[in-house]
């Protein structure tokens, strides 16, 4: 079987398209590359969507945490503490156990039966957990940045008569983004790394449709040889990390384009936020 044929059969296997049975014996390098690569679709799906939704929620959380009113501040503080203070692994387990306890027949709301069984499937349940988790981590980053917006900027805005929502939209928020961006890049990278945990926690892989690490460990279980599949996963993730750094670096350059070149903050990889 040629490699192109393998790619046609297994390239989209993680989405349930193509050959149904996974290879069982005589694993070729091509098969391993293809299947693990097809698993990366899941990692990217989880990472991109969680990051996208999480970004907006994180902004709201950061503002709530910086608010004077304890009714807004306390819930945000607790939310951030719970999600940052506990392992993502436990969060996955807990969410799965909670979601499978939902009634099987759906919940009745206003006479309409809402189907809920899909919530315990990985594509929805794990995405929700990742979304809440990244929102908490990003909110802490944004909150820190919001607190370090230079006092002079705010005073200048006031001197021009810019106050309230306008001041936030035109002065505070852009500066907050600019200050937070290098840390946020790190958060994004480690969120993508965290997506590998999904199928190793409570969430089962439906019809053997798993992520990159799921297929890699499938090969290791079959061949008892960790020296090929895991480096392949590593290879894919290094590429993903480089791509992310590129995209976020471009945004960072745009955010800093008004500054003289020696004052611009650079995106630096600091492996500090695995969870």
């Amino acid at each position: 079987m040629s490699c192109l044929q393998t790619i046609a059969d297994y390239g989209l296997r993680s989405m349930g398209i193509g050959e149904r049975l996974l290879p069982r014996a005589d694993f070729t390098l091509c098969q391993q590359f293809t299947l693990i690569g097809s698993g990366m679709i899941w990692n990217i799906y989880f990472g991109v969507l969680a990051l996208l939704f999480g970004f907006f929620f994180a902004n709201a959380l950061a503002l709530a945490k910086a608010a004077r009113n304890p009714l807004a501040r306390k819930p945000a503080e607790w939310f951030i503490f719970v999600f940052r203070g506990s392992p993502l692994f436990i969060q996955f387990f807990l969410a799965y156990e909670a979601l499978v306890l939902l009634p099987r027949n759906g919940i009745e709301i206003f006479g309409i039966t809402a189907e809920v069984s899909w919530l315990s499937r990985a594509w929805a349940g794990a995405l929700i957990v990742l979304f809440l988790n990244t929102a908490a981590y990003s909110a802490e980053i944004f909150y820190g940045a919001l607190r370090s917006v230079p006092k002079g900027d705010l005073e200048a805005a006031e001197a021009y008569g810019i106050t309230g929502w306008n001041r936030f939209r035109r002065v505070e928020w852009p500066t907050m983004m600019r200050l937070a961006w290098p840390s946020y890049t790190n958060e994004a990278i480690f969120l993508f790394h965290a997506t590998t945990l999904v199928f190793f926690s409570g969430f089962p892989a439906f019809r053997q449709e798993g992520d990159a690490l799921y297929y890699a460990s499938y090969f290791v279980d079959k061949t008892f040889n960790p020296f090929v599949p895991y480096p392949i996963v590593a290879f894919y993730f290094v590429i993903l990390t480089l791509a992310l750094t590129g995209v976020f670096g471009a945004i960072n350059r745009r955010l800093n384009r008004h500054l003289p070149s020696n004052e611009r903050s650079r995106v630096k990889l600091r492996p500090q936020i695995i969870r």
Partner: peptide, 19 residues
């Protein structure tokens, strides 16, 4: 540890060390 998820290392090292 910069570009690769840590869990890959966890799964890899245990088998690799054992072997």
């Amino acid at each position: 540890v910069r570009g690769v998820p840590d869990i890959v290392f966890f799964l890899f090292f245990v088998i690799a060390l054992d072997q």
